[in-house]
Design a protein around this nucleic acid. Structure first.
Length: 298
DNA sequence: AAGAAGTCCTGGGCGC
DNA sequence: TGCGCCCAGGACTTCT
């Protein structure tokens, strides 16, 4: 699933390959992918884009922002299985793109195309008014202003599991299920630990871990677990470096214990029972199995 | 008000 | 082999 590192990789690809090109024609094949906030019918959407040129690509959380001449901007969210693939002029049709899941094609002035592809149809392309979720995003974890103190402020007063807070885009932008699990493992913190009960040292470790995991994933051009492809249609290289995500039952690369899986905030959460002990929560909730390891909470 | 639960969507994995 | 069930998950809505 495209999270911050994957969207950042796509941003860099498109910034290099598509900036400066203009949109010669727009093919809307599936109007549903145009978000309601646009208030644009498909033909108006197309008309609003044709003739504009891409002036650059930005990212905010998991949103990719395409700046267009004349002050317009497209905000794209890929959700689970969405892809934004640039096909250069004269290049062969990219493999693995089933035509029935191609929802939007922006034809470019040099003969290339920018394709929005999404089998699960969760992704959205916004034009005009910015989506509410984008306006409500929390801080960027890789911004210099995101300090351990800022993270402590986010976790303070929250009784939910720390994993749930990490997934909350209004609290912190850009983390999804993969990197939340990876960061918690790296920090040695159990995903169901209450956010407001982490020690100062644990918050510090989590802050380091979040930033390190995201930075390293960007260096490897993201994680391809199944669907993700970058702006050139190529898989990312971080999957081989995952410590817990998708590794339940297999040995922890640090301590050898079998990786376990529980549900936190309605999401599968993988963790190592050796590296990520529940002890604080277990002591405090003696007699309750809310944080029981190796069992889904019902 | 925070947090939990339901919703969307479809490919793929599984059991029988 | 083939059918059908159910899971995966981000963000939004609805509820408590």
């Amino acid at each position: 699933m495209p999270e911050l590192p994957e969207v950042e990789t796509i941003r860099r690809n498109l910034n290099e390959a598509v900036s400066g090109l203009s949109i010669s024609a727009v093919e809307v094949r599936s109007p549903h992918c145009l978000a309601m906030e646009t208030e644009f019918a498909p033909d108006l959407f197309a008309h609003a884009l044709e003739g504009r040129s891409f002036t650059g690509f930005d990212r905010r959380g998991k949103y990719l922002l395409a700046r267009l001449s004349g002050g317009a901007a497209l905000a794209v969210h890929l959700r689970m299985t969405g892809r934004l693939v640039h096909v250069p002029a004269g290049a062969p049709e990219p493999a693995g793109l089933s035509p029935r899941h191609v929802h939007l094609i922006l034809h470019l002035s040099d003969g290339g195309r920018l394709i929005f592809y999404d089998p699960r149809k969760f992704g959205r392309v916004h034009l005009g008014r910015l989506p509410g979720g984008l306006q409500a995003l929390g801080p960027e974890p890789l911004d210099p202003g995101f300090t351990a103190g800022v993270l402590a402020g986010i976790l303070r007063g929250r009784r939910a599991g720390v994993k749930a807070v990490l997934l909350n885009q209004a609290a912190l932008a850009g983390l999804g299920n993969i990197y939340a699990d990876e960061a918690l493992h790296r920090a040695g913190i159990h995903p169901a630990r209450r956010a407001d009960r982490l020690s100062r040292r644990e918050v510090e470790r989590l802050w380091v871990a979040v930033r390190a995991v995201l930075s390293e994933a960007i260096l490897h051009r993201g994680t391809t677990f199944s669907d993700y492809r970058d702006g050139r249609g190529e898989p990312g290289g971080f999957a081989a470096l995952l410590q817990v995500y998708g590794r339940e039952g297999r040995p922890c690369r640090r301590c050898g214990r079998a990786i376990e899986r529980i549900k936190v905030a309605g999401r599968s959460s993988r963790f190592c029972p050796g590296c990520q002990p529940v002890h604080r929560a277990a002591r405090r909730d003696k007699g309750s199995n809310r944080y029981a390891v190796g069992r889904d909470k019902e």
